[in-house]
Amino acid sequence: MDEEYDVIVLGTGLTECILSGIMSVNGKKVLHMDRNPYYGGESSSITPLEELYKRFQLLEGPPESMGRGRDWNVDLIPKFLMANGQLVKMLLYTEVTRYLDFKVVEGSFVYKGGKIYKVPSTETEALASNLMGMFEKRRFRKFLVFVANFDENDPKTFEGVDPQTTSMRDVYRKFDLGQDVIDFTGHALALYRTDDYLDQPCLETVNRIKLYSESLARYGKSPYLYPLYGLGELPQGFARLSAIYGGTYMLNKPVDDIIMENGKVVGVKSEGEVARCKQLICDPSYIPDRVRKAGQVIRIICILSHPIKNTNDANSCQIIIPQNQVNRKSDIYVCMISYAHNVAAQGKYIAIASTTVETTDPEKEVEPALELLEPIDQKFVAISDLYEPIDDGCESQVFCSCSYDATTHFETTCNDIKDIYKRMAGTAFDFENMKRKQNDVFGEAEQ
């Protein structure tokens, strides 16, 4: 370990593993360490099931009705991949897709007046949907046509809207959309967690709705994908990429100290040895004095023996409960997957309800979601602090990732990755940087 590296990475969460992969592909010498004996950090999948019970201090362990412990891979952080989103792009560019198998999530649902409705995925579904009345549908269709044709580089498509100054509230007004449709559009399509976006320039919202539609167009059922064997497969896929390009991995490796000289990182000390480096990437748990708390998320993992009611017996789905429907500031989400994804025993389902904490009784906040899941065989409640770095790391060369937020997709995580890359490399992130180099010394032969 007593060696000189360009970059040392602490923690094998998804953000850290993707950055480690990119740095290795770009010719950097990388050492990647984790104090845990497993990959994934906060974003790991726990197996066998006995391990999950232990982690949540349920000492009696799983009953026999849960089947074989080894058949379970339970995500600690519930997220899906947008089919046309940035993480899929990263997987394709790096060819990490060859280590993973994905399934399309069967449906996306939205909560309205105590019931759940399928988010329409085709024009026919939209016309048949009970989510809105006849005239509302016509106006909504006009709005969707506007979004589909919108091109930020072609003012002819703006229809009198200025993407940089017109607020989204004004765009909704222009198409005369009612409150329910606005809730549905902002939260189930643009996937905002709160209503803060309404008074911001509309460009980002329009682009988010386009991303949803384009992702949906790829597979038809929903815009989301999920990897077989759980999300823990993602960091491992990128760790393989890093290793192929010469990255060194050490799990179960305690970090005793991060060594600084004149305010700059110069190395990491572990078990009496020092590895030197020019730059350091880590998750917040490794540098508690360089991060601040930015809120909390509650996630309740529920094991069920039945599909969720009114989802047409889907073996995977997402449910969004827009905040307006339950008098909150932030949406509540449910991600459900099952034995069909090799993450649970035969006939079992895993539904994870999550939201940003707003009160001193977080469990009560998630109740509307839990009511949709009854009866629940077993619950595991996790309340996590969200951390963000206190500075950009440019001076110390210590670059810290943000905690995983309450969103049900990876777009915010990818933004964090691109942002850290830019601060480390001094140049904007470009997907081309992730391409495997042809015929290089570490390149794998085609399968």
Rank of each mutant, 00 (worst) to 15 (best):
E3R: 00
E4K: 04
L10F: 11
L10E: 01
L14I: 00
T15P: 00
E16Q: 09
S20R: 00
G21V: 06
I22M: 08
S24K: 13
S24R: 14
H32D: 14
M33G: 02
M33L: 12
M33T: 05
Y38V: 00
G40E: 02
S44F: 08
I46S: 12
K54Q: 03
Q57R: 08
L58F: 05
L59H: 06
G67T: 12
R68Q: 07
R70Q: 10
W72S: 02
W72M: 00
A83T: 09
A83N: 13
G85E: 06
Q86P: 04
Q86R: 08
V88A: 11
K89R: 11
M90F: 13
T94S: 04
V96M: 09
Y99H: 06
D101A: 08
F102V: 09
S108K: 07
S108C: 07
Y117M: 13
K118F: 02
V119E: 06
A126E: 02
A126V: 07
N130G: 13
N130V: 06
F135E: 04
F135R: 14
F135V: 11
K137W: 00
K137T: 11
R138C: 00
F146L: 04
V147G: 03
N149D: 09
F150I: 07
D154E: 03
P155S: 09
K156T: 07
K156R: 12
G160P: 05
G160A: 02
V161L: 12
T166N: 00
S167T: 05
M168A: 14
M168V: 07
M168Q: 01
R169P: 03
Y172L: 01
L177P: 02
Q179R: 10
T185D: 15
Y197F: 00
L198F: 05
L203A: 01
T205V: 15
I209Y: 15
I209R: 01
K210E: 05
Y212C: 09
E214K: 09
A217D: 00
R218H: 14
G220D: 04
S222G: 08
S222Y: 10
P223L: 03
Y224D: 00
P235S: 10
F238V: 02
A239V: 10
A239S: 05
R240I: 00
R240T: 03
L241W: 01
L241E: 04
K253R: 10
V255S: 14
D257G: 12
D257H: 01
M260F: 15
M260R: 12
E261A: 11
G263F: 06
K264Y: 14
K264G: 15
K264M: 01
V265L: 08
V266F: 14
S270G: 08
G272D: 15
A275Q: 14
K278C: 10
K278A: 12
L280E: 12
C282G: 04
P288M: 15
D289I: 11
R290S: 02
R290H: 09
K293E: 09
A294F: 14
A294E: 08
G295C: 08
I298M: 02
I303A: 13
I303N: 09
I303V: 12
L304Q: 02
P307A: 04
I308L: 06
I308V: 09
T311R: 01
N315W: 12
C317A: 13
I319V: 07
P322S: 07
Q325P: 07
I332L: 05
Y333H: 13
Y333N: 05
C335G: 14
H341N: 00
N342K: 09
N342Y: 12
Q346S: 11
Q346W: 13
K348T: 11
T355N: 00
V357G: 07
V357E: 03
E358S: 14
T359A: 06
T359Y: 04
K364Y: 15
K364S: 05
K364G: 12
E365Y: 01
V366K: 01
A369R: 03
L370R: 06
L370Q: 11
L372E: 05
P375D: 02
P375I: 05
K379V: 02
D385I: 15
E388Y: 06
P389L: 07
D391E: 02
G393I: 15
C394F: 12
S396T: 12
C400L: 13
S401P: 09
S401F: 03
D405V: 09
H409C: 12
F410H: 15
F410I: 06
T413P: 02
T413M: 15
T413N: 04
I417S: 09
I417T: 08
K422L: 01
T427N: 14
T427A: 11
F429R: 15
D430H: 00
E432Q: 03
N433H: 02
M434V: 10
K435Q: 12
K435T: 09
R436G: 03
K437R: 11
K437L: 12
Q438R: 09
A445P: 13
A445Y: 11
E446G: 10
